Amino acid sequence: MSVGMPSPLAPEAVPPSAPLLRVEGLTRHFMVSGTRIDVLHDCTFEVHRGEIVAIVGQSGSGKSTLLSLLGLLDRPSGGEYVFDGVNTSRLGEGPRSRLRGEGIGFVFQQFHLLERRTALANVGVPLVLAGQPALRRRSRSRELLEAVGLGHRLHSKPHQLSGGEQQRVALARALSRDPALILADEPTGALDADSSKMIMDQLLEQARIRDSAVVVVTHDPKVAERAHRVVELVEGRTR
């Protein structure tokens, strides 16, 4: 499946607009014991606001590496990554960190919740880092947990929640600063079929409400079918 090819079960197409992110000629290599390992080669694609894009490919094709670059958690070896009009290759660490914190939300296969904290406290972590006052954090976290159907679980800790509920807490946390871009790395990989569908329903609905773009890495064809477009990675190259 080529870059830009629509999924047959995709939602209604997103109208043309300036891209939220543009990747052009992106490459990434690592040096391991003096040997250069090329992971990504000349990746090029765009994602628009409100668009859902699935990245698929075999294990080792570079999907997680690409997601780390899109999330400004890593720097490319070459090429250009423009996010929300900003050429990120020219940014120092401080501005990159601010852009990541304000503009990008993350959802991972493993939920990465703080075990000793309640759902309310977990959702508020990005707001703590942003310096928001306690009352504002609690109000915002409550609002988001209610939005993903967990208004009755505000004071539950992770071990008291099912896998699907934990992932909904993680989704609420990713939405806490109204990011323009949500990056999801196998968000349903640790869940059963019913929970997977619920998470995708919630993710896409919340993205629609906020006009956020979603880039999701997945091995699950049912998840890829929910996207507007599929970008396939083959040996580190987009197709």
Results as ranks from 00 to 15, higher is better:
Arg49Asp: 03
Gly57Met: 06
Met31Phe: 10
Gly25Val: 05
Asp38Lys: 04
Gly62Glu: 07
Gly60Met: 04
Glu51Trp: 02
His48Pro: 02
Leu26Arg: 08
Gly50Glu: 02
Pro19Leu: 08
Arg28Lys: 15
Ile37Arg: 14
Asp42Cys: 11
Ser33Gly: 12
Gly50Phe: 04
Thr35Asp: 07
Glu24Pro: 10
Pro19Asp: 01
Ala54Asn: 05
Gly60Tyr: 00
Met31Lys: 10
Cys43Ser: 07
Leu21Arg: 08
Thr44Glu: 01
Ile37Asn: 08
Cys43Trp: 02
Gly25Cys: 12
Leu40Trp: 00
Gly57Pro: 09
Val47Asn: 07
Gly34Ala: 01
Leu20Thr: 03
His29Tyr: 13
Gly60Asn: 12
Leu20Asp: 02
Gly50His: 01
Phe30His: 14
Val39Cys: 02
Ile37Trp: 00
Ala18Met: 05
His41Pro: 03
Gly34Lys: 08
Gly34Ile: 06
Thr27Asp: 15
Ile52Tyr: 11
Val56Asn: 05
Ser61Thr: 07
Ile37Val: 14
Arg22Leu: 08
Arg28Gly: 04
Gly60Ser: 12
Cys43Pro: 02
Arg49Asn: 05
Leu20Met: 11
Thr35Ala: 08
Ser61Met: 12
Val39Arg: 01
Val56Glu: 01
Leu40Phe: 08
Glu46Pro: 09
His41Thr: 07
Val39Ile: 07
Leu21Gly: 09
Phe45Val: 12
Glu46Val: 13
Ala18Pro: 11
Val53Trp: 04
Val32Arg: 15
Leu20His: 03
Thr27Leu: 12
Glu46Asp: 15
Glu46His: 14
Phe30Arg: 10
Gly57Thr: 00
Pro19Phe: 03
Arg22Glu: 12
Glu51Met: 04
Glu46Ser: 12
Val56Tyr: 05
Val53Cys: 09
Thr44Pro: 09
Thr27Lys: 13
Met31Ala: 08
Ala54Lys: 08
Phe30Gly: 10
Phe45Ser: 10
Gly50Trp: 03
Leu26Cys: 05
Phe30Tyr: 15
Leu40Met: 00
Asp38Leu: 00
Met31Glu: 11
Ile52Gly: 01
Ile55Asn: 06
Gly34Thr: 07
Thr44Lys: 13
Met31His: 10
Glu51Gln: 14
Gly50Leu: 00
Phe45Gln: 10
Glu24Ala: 13
Cys43Leu: 15
Asp42Leu: 00
Thr27Gly: 14
Ala54Pro: 09
Leu21Asn: 06
Val32Ser: 08
Ala18Asn: 14
Ser59His: 10
Ala54Ser: 14
Val56Ser: 00
Ser59Cys: 10
Glu24Lys: 15
Ala54Met: 03
Met31Ser: 09
Ile52Lys: 04
Gly25Leu: 08
Arg49Val: 00
Val32Leu: 14
Arg28Thr: 05
Val23Ile: 13
Phe45Thr: 11
Glu51Asp: 06
Ala18Glu: 14
Val47Phe: 02
Val47Asp: 09
Thr35Lys: 13
Gly60Ile: 09
Arg22His: 05
Val53Asn: 01
Ser59Gln: 05
Arg28Ser: 07
His41Arg: 15
His41Leu: 07
Glu24Asn: 12
Met31Ile: 01
Val39Thr: 01
Ser33Asn: 09
Ile55Asp: 02
Leu26Val: 15
Pro19Ala: 06
Thr35Cys: 14
Gly57Gln: 06
Val23Ser: 03
Met31Pro: 04
Ser59Ile: 05
Gly62Thr: 09
Pro19Trp: 04
Leu21His: 03
Val56Cys: 02
Ile55Ala: 04
Leu20Val: 02
